[in-house]
Amino acid sequence: MSPVGVTLIIVSSPVIVASELVKRYGGVTAVGGISFEVAPGESFGLLGPNGAGKSTTMRMVGAVSTRTSGRLTILGLDPDHDGPEIRAQLGVVPQADNLDEELRVRENLMVYGRYFGLPMSYVRRKADDLLAFAQLQDKAKSKVTDLSGGMKRRLTIARGLMNDPRILLLDEPTTGLDPQARHILWDRLFRLKEQGTTLVLTTHYMDEAEQLCDRLIVVDKGVIMAEGTPASLIREYSTREVLELRFGADRNAEMAESLSGSGDRVEALPDRVLVYTADGEGELARLTEAGIRPLTSLVRRSSLEDVFLRLTGRSLIE
């Protein structure tokens, strides 16, 4: 009998299994029957607009919020019974920072590490390692309130790593950060991914989803609209290229009307008209020949934003 076979079974069994997960708040259905699995080492994303139910899902997966119905196992355990055992193996970066503002930066890490029953001497060393990882060594003694938004996020990630979690849950890790701060953060997350940490993250930025997620679900109004890798979703729900035409706010809708039939599909947005096509330049040339004169035109590759638009008829960020 091969021990390798045994190992493979253990390694490939999913770390998260959610099936028909439902959460209702009174009459409001925040999550309306979501099913997905996450494999160990995978980077899994939930992409969706505000109010889609992403945070609620993350809180259930984090073994904090109790589910209304459905099946949920995290690392083979049921959060209803083994909450502490599950949470002992998770790292959590919530949407809203909840660092203790009355403690210094390093103390925030130490205090949090203690919650995992870790000895004080270990917690001190670990805090220093993670401050270095989060590029916050100089800030060890600073007040949390003196940190920038990006630094707070990095500190929160460091806090989530105090227990060497098997799964790191990140709820909108870069929302509200400037582009530079986002890139620093992404770089840190890439490192964790390389080290084999399973990442589950939510975002309403399609570029973030494309950058960080091996696989994702597109969620809207508490249900899954589509699932796949970023590339496969774009292949399935969009065309290779998109031709963006601007005719001025008052003429876009009218022009979209007369363009229908061009490319595979035409979408009218308030500020521009999108023509979905495999060959953007070719389509533009054809339209120009037919006497269509947009104020500006642009050919770009399809993104997850287009997937979302196709699936819901709305933009991700409204």
């Binding site: 502490p84 193996q89 919650y115 029953g117 227990n163 060497d164 098997r166």
Partner: peptide
């Protein structure tokens, strides 16, 4: 470059300690 020191922490004692001493932490 900083590598995080990864020690494989067995989570069950962690949870057991938290269940017992959590209030003290």
């Amino acid at each position: 470059m900083t590598a995080i020191q990864t020690r494989v922490l067995d989570a069950s004692p962690s949870a057991a300690k938290a269940r017992r001493f959590g209030a003290w932490y």
